[in-house]
Design a protein around this nucleic acid. Structure first.
Lengths: 148, 148
DNA sequence: GTAACTGCAAAAAATTTGCACACTG
DNA sequence: CAGTGTGCAAATTTTTTGCAGTTAC
């Protein structure tokens, strides 16, 4: 087992996994470590590479399975990019929204949820009951703005 | 050329295509027809099947290319579903938001844009300039609510 | 006419599955 | 030690590409 993994997300993940009777394996913690040190959203391939660098070997299938679990647990969120691609990033929970820098794919919390402020009058007028939503903001972060 | 294609989206698409120097081919109009008659979001495969039924033959590659173009033009929007899948539906423009019924994948307009009501104070506090956003609401439509 | 398009078949990319072995709790 | 999880390789699924032959304008 590799030391130096400690971060908020790790202990949180350990707890959630334990609650569900799932195991905190080296590979799962490595995925967390990779996401943590990158500080941005990563593609499946990038996560796979990071875990391989950390552990020597890692099956791509394990990465997929791990990300599925983490997404269910709300630790991680699948983000969609304007170019059609997608990636994964930490999330503070299933119902948090994120801002993504289109240049570096860095991820920032977006604390407000504008949808909650909204009454669903127009939705109900169409006979639609809103149960959940997905929001993602695109833009440019500080650092990428400087470079440009 | 197949008759009976006429719908708002068709003439709109024809105009946009012409503006860009692109051609209103039978296949492109067929994609519009299929989306129009379905009245909901469809997977690439479903669109392909629909076009094949209409034209006899249709290359899958053409469907992909057509959807890419239509998405660029803002006629069509790629929607993401909670199960990880995705599909395409008509959009009134690049910046419209939609509600998707998780049962039938029907798509409804969501006229308000809650994000526009929002000041980006918290975003700017983090040094982030918001430039665009993606919103999708999930829920249940009238008909699916009755059945359930 | 001629550029833009198409279908096809092959290639590439992305994701899933089955299974024998390994590790966590 | 029991059941969960892993790596691997193969299977599947999804998307892209190159090209010779069409078609819209």
């Amino acid at each position: 087992m590799i030391k130096d993994f400690e971060c908020v997300q790790e202990s949180y993940a350990r707890d959630l996994l334990r609650e569900k009777g799932l195991k905190s394996t080296t590979q799962r913690l490595a995925v967390i470590h990779v996401l943590h040190t990158s500080g941005k959203s990563l593609s499946v391939g990038e996560i796979h590479d990071g875990v391989k660098k950390l552990l020597g070997v890692a099956g791509l299938a394990t990465i997929y399975r791990t990300l599925d679990i983490f997404e269910d647990l709300g630790i991680v969120k699948r983000l969609h990019f304007p170019d059609g691609g997608h990636g994964y990033a930490f999330s503070r929970g299933r119902h948090f929204h994120h801002m993504v820098c289109v240049d570096c794919r860095g991820v920032f919390d977006f604390p407000e949820c504008p949808v909650e402020w909204l009454d669903y009058a127009s939705a109900e007028k169409q006979g639609f009951r809103v149960k959940d939503h997905f929001i993602q903001l695109f833009g440019q972060c500080d650092k990428c703005a400087e470079v440009a």
